[in-house]
Amino acid sequence: MTSEFFTNVRTAVLGLTGLVCLVYGGGALAMGTPQPFAFWLPGLFGVASVILISIAALAAGDDNARRATDEGYVADRRHAEGFGFWVAILLYPAFAVPLWQGWVSYPTAYAAMGTLTAAAFLLRFVWADVKGRL
């Protein structure tokens, strides 16, 4: 397995997990329930991503895994962490009025905020990775 293939696997599984989180968060808000579909799905995708990326890294070997986690990857990851951090912070004021007015319940808000924060980090990373390779 080449470094490029390992990167493709990582991008695909993180992108898929990010989309699941985004759909869960959006679904929670749209449907007004903390469980728009099975609550364990985002977590399952996260765990499956870790397992698949680990297997891909082992199959790729040390040199290819090191190339796929070089300084360009670190820069993308840091940008994504920063983006996820600010999304997480900004979700609090964004939800303040809806919670105060009772438009959204606390369980629904927590479910949406948690999964949207994860989606922000994952999708920002995947976007930077895909854009950088074009």
Binding site: E4, R67, E71, G72, G132
Partner: peptide
Amino acid sequence: VGVSRKTINT
């Protein structure tokens, strides 16, 4: 040089 193609591209 031991980096990814993406890094060279960026």
